[in-house]
Amino acid sequence: MMIPARPAYEPGDDSAELLKGLDARTLREIERAAQSPRMFGLAFGKTLRTAFTHCLHDPAARASGTWQAWAAAMQTGSALFASAMTAEGTTVECLIAHEKRAVPGLGGPTPFTDAGTWLQAFWLAIICRDQVRLTQLAHVPMELLRSSGTDFEEYVYDWVDALQTYWLEGEGLGDKLVAAFDGTNPQNLKFVDRELMLMILYPPLNVFYRFLTQDDEEFDKTLLQAVQLHHEYWTADEERAGDLDGAVALAPLALACLAHDAGRPIPFETEYLPEGLLDRSWLGRFPT
């Protein structure tokens, strides 16, 4: 069993100061977005990159600052959709970065309330074990996601539908997951290339299916394969190797968290699935 290792990263002696400055800049982005929620998309991207950067400096995700960065990313992603689902002229209370904020409602879609962002927000809520936010995200209407103005392969909406149905224990989960699988056929792709589909986008569907079927051996196999493919994709060339998006395997990590919480031990360790996030060691240390 080959366990992929993330490309070597040497934080340096100024690691603490670097993270302190990064956290301060990220907080300012959050504060601006909480006042002007049309900026939430940019703030969400910033918080996610900050969380990934913390994991470069803290690969096992054991430091309090790392968990706080991941919680802030989760809170920002969820607030983005909460604002879109709140009527204009009113506010919605959102806890972000340790502060309750009255976020103005936008009353409809924005360019950032798309299905891809929804998936990231959902994975973060799973990783942070926030059932309330998971339920809120599961109630985001499909029409709001489709109205963002961003083009996605049709399978993405079936994938979102399947995850919402799973979390809300609704009917038709199997059919929705089959539809999502069918839509990943590389021959039918319009907006993404074959490599991205086969190495990054498709594997989480397969891992989720094995989780649902409670086949521990196949789950372990497909999870490891998902991480291996993630590694291969993000180390294929120098440009990708330097991209923060490859630092953590976000969707596989979230699905591994589901398995961990269901009592299924993950039989391998890798920095792509930070141990402190997987075993929820910081859960309950501060309000999220």
Rank of each mutant, 00 (worst) to 15 (best):
K46Y: 02
T288R: 14
R101E: 03
A5K: 13
E169N: 14
E269M: 09
Q187H: 07
E217L: 10
Q136L: 12
S64M: 06
K100E: 04
D216Q: 11
L119G: 04
F286V: 04
N206C: 06
R25Q: 12
A259V: 14
T110W: 12
H57G: 03
G183F: 04
Q120W: 11
E88L: 01
P11A: 02
A251H: 07
E10K: 02
N206T: 13
R194F: 03
Q131C: 08
T90F: 04
L198R: 02
P274N: 09
R101P: 02
H57P: 01
T76V: 09
L255M: 05
L189R: 03
T110Y: 15
A87I: 00
G89D: 09
G170F: 15
L22T: 03
A72H: 11
E143F: 02
G183T: 05
L124E: 11
G170P: 05
W234R: 08
A97R: 06
R133S: 06
S83K: 10
T26Y: 12
Q228K: 07
K20Y: 12
F52I: 09
Q131N: 13
D14M: 06
E143P: 00
T76L: 05
L19M: 08
T86M: 05
L258M: 12
P203T: 07
F122E: 03
G116Q: 01
F152M: 01
L224T: 08
T91G: 03
D261R: 14
N185S: 07
G45V: 11
E269N: 07
M199I: 09
D220I: 07
L22G: 01
H98S: 03
P141K: 04
H139W: 14
Q75T: 01
L56H: 15
K20Q: 13
Y157Q: 00
F112Y: 13
S147R: 10
D23V: 04
D215I: 08
I126H: 13
T235P: 07
Q214V: 02
G174T: 05
V178E: 05
P265Y: 14
Q35N: 10
W123C: 05
D243N: 08
F286I: 13
G21P: 00
Q75Y: 06
N185K: 07
L95Q: 11
